[in-house]
Design a protein around this nucleic acid. Structure first.
Lengths: 337, 337
DNA sequence: GAATTCTCTGTGAACGTTCACAGTGCGGCA
DNA sequence: TGCCGCACTGTGAACGTTCACAGAGAATTC
């Protein structure tokens, strides 16, 4: 006979089973210090034997807290879901939040309808905080978020709102400098770059770092733009080869685009790294499986995710403000440079 | 001056502003037919002007419904997050559920602790249904799920529980048959296969389909096993080449493993498709960017995801049972075979 | 020995909904 | 005229918590 008692046990059932009152059960469950050890033990036993689980809805109603955080994906396209970095972020965030018994709900904010839904959800007080993923600088959601006055933290800086929305991010600029310097030290003379979208911190800052080392004017003709997709990496590489046939190195703003660039270089008969050195960015899974293996810049993504969650939880716990974090990157040399 | 009124408007505020009672507001909001057009208009106006949003916690408390569905990722490793199929599923499910104003919360059930958390969450009645992703046949979560008596649907069949947990899935077996037949028709004589894990429907059924065409005994020596990872595809390909140096085709159980196999074939100096034809499975993004481009079997993943969500919503809406779905695959010929 | 503090406990109210029930007019029908 | 059904509305109770408050003893202080 299945033990499916129709009704879920409530705090009253626990109270009855343990011989104390609702109030005491509630206190015992929530770690209030004013609970006798006897009462605590009785409650513990009763909880175990009734299989009681707190009803979050009822709790939310009175505490005005939901135990829920929303991860907002404000990428217009489906691109984000193909970004290997996204999976890392999602995995780490889910785990970290679960440790605190906070549920993570996913929402996409691609079009206006989506966005309206997100705002309605938040305005309804259904979440205690917001985790922003890859928000572009012009995203209209950001303004709405500010009027909502709900704790929000971004994973990666939000361009133009660095002071407003706290974030944890990798040091894109310094990482790009490391790579550029490395290529220079290897004796490369004509170093090009393929950037990510310039309205993202990764796109912009990696380009900045590149220019820091090589000089802004010197590289003017050596810049091509992509959108982080593999395909855009191919297109940009073709463009560069047409424009600067004698380039001998290229720093690509993401591993995925670098994979595309490698394909085009092979197609055009350039040997890597003999003729052209290629450097990527991310050190994602793909970097180890290109041919040749990709020399790249490792982003501490897991740490970024962990810290982002930490910042958000601090805000939710009542911190007035939190300090944004910039975490350092590391050059990983493999075969392509 | 920001219009941040401290208190969120409640149904009482709307009632007052529209000059009707709580009950009528509630009815108007929930589409009850017994509401006069005048009242309906008044309520609409009041909602707009107060910015009212229903409090889900309060609603849940009385309706016993949460408007939430849990997506459980029961992959032991982090593998799932690297699976390109996962992103498709996540994207589609999020969208479909959002259309019905159902929130999707993500939970990982990797280790026992995770699993306990998931069960506690469900037992607490915090979700109306469960979306199962890539559950293995022996997963202890499944048994627990059954005792919980909560609507659950799997994306892809759950081996050994096909009758218990409804699902939507691609027709793996028929897809494998298509590919095997195609290779035969191309005149290939020694056709090997690299399987996925045999405790997954994809691993098992694709092998079955392969054997359907080629005969179980005939292929005995031509089978190697992988775990869907790229690395395992490389290892399996090496093993096959060592064992059967004169093979002239290989059907690989996933595109990612096929990419690994291609790398090994190149490394061993085999031309694809001249010396060895390679067939993949999934038609994921990677299939278009290998070298040569991968001939593969397209899974209607978006449709699988859509249908999975539909089945779950039907169960939640009270359907006693729902019919599982098997959707047909399609051979996509590119360069590798 | 009385007053005060400290620890622990129970109780009533409140959170914001929905639902069942009990009306209230109003029109149609016998 | 009286009765019934129909369309609509308002009200009280309930959902399962937490929180503030008040009270009971025991321990401590004066």
């Amino acid at each position: 006979m299945p033990v499916t008692n129709k009704r879920r046990p409530t705090i009253h059932d626990v109270a009855r089973a343990s011989g104390v009152s609702r109030g005491t059960v509630s206190r015992a469950l929530n770690g209030d210090p004013y609970v006798s050890t006897a009462a605590l033990a009785a409650v513990r036993r009763a909880v175990a034997e009734t299989g009681y689980v707190v009803n979050r809805a009822a709790r939310s109603l009175v505490t005005q807290r939901t135990g829920t955080v929303v991860m907002v994906l404000s990428e217009p396209q489906e691109k984000l879901f193909e970004d290997p970095n996204f999976s890392v972020l999602l995995r780490v965030a889910t785990r970290r939040l679960a440790q605190r018994d906070v549920a993570l709900v996913m929402m996409v904010a691609g079009d206006d309808g989506d966005r309206e839904r997100v705002v309605r959800y938040l305005r309804g007080g259904h979440a205690d905080g917001v985790l922003l993923l890859s928000a572009h600088s012009g995203d209209p959601l950001l303004a709405e978020l500010e009027t909502l006055a709900i704790p929000a933290v971004a994973c990666g800086a939000v361009l133009g709102r660095e002071g407003v929305i706290p974030y944890a991010a990798a040091d894109d600029r310094e990482g790009a400098r490391q790579m550029a310097q490395y290529l220079v030290d290897q004796g490369r003379k004509k170093i090009a770059t393929i950037t990510g979208p310039l309205d993202t911190p990764g796109g912009l800052n990696r380009l900045e770092g590149f220019c820091d080392v090589l000089g802004r004017k010197a590289v003017k003709k050596l810049i091509a733009h992509g959108d982080y997709s593999r395909h855009s990496g191919e297109a940009a590489m073709r463009e560069l080869l047409d424009r600067v046939p004698d380039l001998d190195a290229v720093f690509v703003g993401s591993d995925l685009m670098a994979a595309g660039a490698l394909a085009v270089l092979r197609e055009r008969g350039r040997r890597v790294p003999e003729d052209v050195a290629v450097g990527g960015f991310d050190d994602s899974a793909i970097a180890g499986s290109t041919h040749p293996k990709l020399t790249t810049v490792r982003q501490p993504l897991e740490q970024v995710a962990t810290e982002t969650v930490r910042l958000l939880l601090e805000l939710i716990d009542g911190a007035e403000t939190v300090e944004s974090l910039v975490l350092s990157t590391e050059l990983v040399t493999r075969e392509s440079a």
